[in-house]
């Protein structure tokens, strides 16, 4: 979050509406968006209610959905097979709607690490991971991960063993990838919920590895 508003004080004064959004005032693009939005609503293309619901659906999506799929795949070999065969169908099995695009799940092994990117834009499996982080959409990640993935992973604090292959998957509008990381050592006795808790967004993008010691105390 941006914004320098400290909340250690008493709340006896009115707060500005969404201070983060207001910080720079109304930019030209914000005014353009507001104008086009109102014209579409006035023109009956969609309603303010439709917009509110769309934003609610967007906010409801999070990496927790992907983490549930990963944890299920770790404990249930048959689910793992279905997940790798058809990611969208396997997501729906767990009640996760994935829209019209294909979801391809790529599995890490002891020899291979997978990483996802969209070099041309920002395609991302948002139905199972929520909205992408800013860095996923930015120049540096898109430019570099396809040519020096090990260096990029190292910047995220992920050191791969020598000899491990790295496969970088470049997404498209119609085909999104998600990484199924390898189940870490030391988690043999864990239940699905505990397993899901160590599967972060970055683990499913592929720039991080799940670790048994990441479990919440």
């Amino acid at each position: 979050m941006s914004g320098g508003h400290e909340h250690g004080h008493d709340h006896d004064h009115p707060h500005p509406f969404q201070p983060d959004d207001d910080a720079g005032g109304l930019t030209e693009h914000m005014a353009l968006v507001a104008a086009v939005r109102e014209l579409l609503i006035e023109g009956g293309i969609y309603s303010a209610e439709d917009e509110r619901r769309a934003i609610e659906r967007m906010d409801a999506r999070s990496p927790a959905a992907g983490a549930r799929m990963v944890a299920r795949a770790w404990v249930d070999p048959a689910y793992r097979e279905r997940l790798l065969a058809d990611g969208a169908a396997a997501a729906r099995e767990l009640g996760v709607e994935v829209g019209p695009t294909r979801l391809i799940v790529v599995a890490d092994t002891a020899e291979t690490k997978n990483v996802i990117v969209c070099t041309l834009c920002s395609c991302y499996p948002r139905w199972v991971l929520g909205l992408p982080p800013a860095w996923y959409k930015a120049r540096a990640y898109r430019a570099r991960v396809v040519v020096e993935p090990r260096a990029v992973l190292a910047e995220f604090g992920t050191q791969l063993p020598d000899g491990m292959a790295v496969r970088v998957h470049d997404s498209t509008a119609d085909m999104r990838y998600m990484v199924l990381p390898a189940r870490p050592e030391g988690t043999q006795d864990w239940d699905e919920e505990a397993l899901a808790a160590i599967v972060s967004r970055d683990c499913m993008i592929g720039v991080a590895l799940p670790r048994a010691d990441a479990k919440a105390a």
Partner: peptide, 27 residues
Amino acid sequence: DLGGAPAGPIDAHEHAVAHWEKQVDAM
């Protein structure tokens, strides 16, 4: 078309998505 283009370090800071940006996405 950025794959392989020159680029600096990755800025991994998290940025909250502003409401107007969600309105663009919803649009």
